[in-house]
Design a protein around this nucleic acid. Structure first.
Lengths: 216, 216, 216, 216
DNA sequence: GATGAATGAGCTTTCATTCAT
DNA sequence: GATGAATGAAAGCTCATTCAT
């Protein structure tokens, strides 16, 4: 089990930095070693391979994100409050760990087949947690029943991730809480079952079933 | 005029395929050439470099996406109908061009600094189009005024992209129209100004200003 | 005999320019074509190959140099006057055709085996002409008999070529005629048999036979 | 400290061989590696690039030549004796290191702009040393005052280099010491101030100021 | 435990040359 | 006579990985 770092965690931290700056393929072990202040061989002494190092990084990140989300969920009972908290936590996490945000989005999510295992972990971890909340909400009648929870959870994850990345990269004039506020505003209201909706199962705006019309 | 492909567009199409399968860095020109059925030199005869080929691909894709969105917008007058159409078109586009979807998300968006120019094009093209609709909607009173349009537009883009990619990659049991329906359901209702909201400017659910609480 | 240029001689002139600027190996046919304002294929229509083009250039240059030298020789009878004229002509030629100077020295002379034929032409043309003058001078008693004419001719060629190149490249404060004057001063006096020398066959300064002493 | 060779210097020696045989542009790293008996990567581990390797070679050579010349100069007091020794040493050096001779002449001197730094080193090293001797000789009255020392030094360098190369490449029937003897004979007598010259400052043979007459 | 010299497969890119038009 | 699209061999260089110390 060579996967554990040495003393502190210089290699680990250095790797996160470099990987997130340059992406997996453009990161050289040489640079990680240099940034960590160790010899190149040392990295191979601690991690099986470049890929092994990367995977260790990613999994650690997913676990942390999952933990954060679950912690926030555990602190609340009500579904709506939980959703609010999830979005805040999620967004904060990406804001604090821009590195992970980039890696998760660009390397892991985008090139699915190459990191299948890790994508699966994302889907069964953080996204599943969100999904569960939505399902409980549907059962309790506070979440609309005409949305498909799986897609909604993924959409929420995607919206937060992409928005966070955008905010981090091009931090415009909008403040952090404004952005989070907007996200919550859209998603909560979008998912919430209003009093008036409870009896009808049809969407508010009667759109047609989207018969794949648009081409290029 | 070296930038234009030859007769049909075998190199172009082959490149999209391979790039989207393996990502930019893991794609070898050799493989593109082989897939296109031309010699390696031919690619360099038509495109300045590997990066040049990639950029040509991306920009073409962005333009097409923008066109699709603008076409749908032009066909409608009302903001809500436009938003619906945009989501459908957007989702359909990514569904039909899974390759672009992957490239846009993983290579271009995720590694912002390496493709700055192209990211900017995305932001000033498709995303800007969505943003404009939202702004007009706010002016007309049909879109909530307490959401920040820039973030909302990015969030919509991200939600559609990530969901589309998820759907494409792990196409579960959910049908295409269900997913699009869900997206529309969430975003439309999430952004729409309800009759009851018109007089109050405060959000439905009184959440706190998100004081950056969550750590790791 | 594809070796002859077309109408005027744009390809030829362009080739001289580019070859002398970049050397043989670093010159691309593409650039020659562009500088000549013709298509790449046209060069291959007129010259068998890159090497063929280069050789044609070099031989033309050697012929011109030989002609210049022979013309100056033919105009004079006396050996000393001929030598003076040869040095002037030689130096002038290199000054006016810096391109050839560079090509001759760096490509042809320096990499003997690759252009054997052309080096031979140099040795049997211009250098031979100088050598003949020296031989006639020795016969007439105006050139010292203790110098070996072959080496002396080569040394003169080398001194002029390297000095000309140096002058062209780093044209310092010294004027053209000063440099030529210096060259002539050294070589003429160095080769000339002085009145006092006529009876003794020994060198002025009694140096030892140079028993290959110096190492590294 | 990547610039220093490994143990002995197999790469270095192999590189000198191949570069001098084929010239810079026609030398492939593959061949150097093969000749040195190491893997291609090893060369890049020890030298930054092909150009870096070449430059290291050249500079080493220039330094050695300079050392040889300076050593011989230091052993003597008198200018004439020094000049003799310089020519002998110079010629011997090129004879023993035919490789350097070729490289210096063809690559470095001929294509000045590409190796500017190294050409400058040549000019400020070995050539400058010769020049200094000539200047001291002029001051002491043993070297003619009507020659320009800079040009004379370059001419001497060129004559020796080109003659040495010629001798090495086509070693005719003339013996080493004959050639060196000839060079010394010409240059010493050519530069030396004869007793008779001391009072007159005009050249022996009253040549005209060389009004750039010769064309092509 | 840690190192870093050595490796070699694999990559992008260049360019002399050909040939159908 | 001229063209220029297409070719493919060959080059410089990178870098994950190994292993003797």
């Amino acid at each position: 089990m060579k996967a554990a770092p040495r003393r502190g965690l210089p290699i680990f931290e250095a790797a996160v930095q470099v990987f997130s700056e340059k992406g997996f393929a453009n990161t050289s072990i040489d640079e990680v070693a240099q940034r960590a202040g160790v010899a190149k061989g040392t990295i191979y002494y601690n991690y099986r391979s470049k890929k092994g190092l990367f995977v260790a990084l990613i999994e650690e990140g997913i676990e942390r994100l999952e933990k954060v989300i679950n912690r926030e969920l555990a602190r609340r009972d009500e579904v709506i409050a939980q959703l609010q908290a999830v979005i805040t936590a999620h967004f904060s996490f990406f804001d604090e760990h821009r590195d992970y945000c980039r890696l998760l989005l660009s390397e892991v999510w985008g090139l699915g087949h190459r990191w299948e295992k890790q994508v699966e972990r994302l889907r069964t971890g953080p996204i599943r947690a969100i999904r569960n909340v939505l399902e409980r909400g549907q059962a309790a009648g506070v979440i609309r029943r005409d949305i498909e929870v799986e897609s909604a959870a993924v959409a929420l994850f995607g919206a937060v991730a992409v928005t966070a990345l955008n905010w981090v990269l091009f931090q415009g004039r909008s403040r952090f809480d404004e952005v989070a506020h907007t996200l919550k505003g859209i998603f909560l209201r979008g998912c919430q079952a209003h009093a008036a909706d409870k009896d009808r199962e049809t969407p508010v705006n009667g759109w047609e079933p989207a018969a794949r019309p648009v081409g290029v």
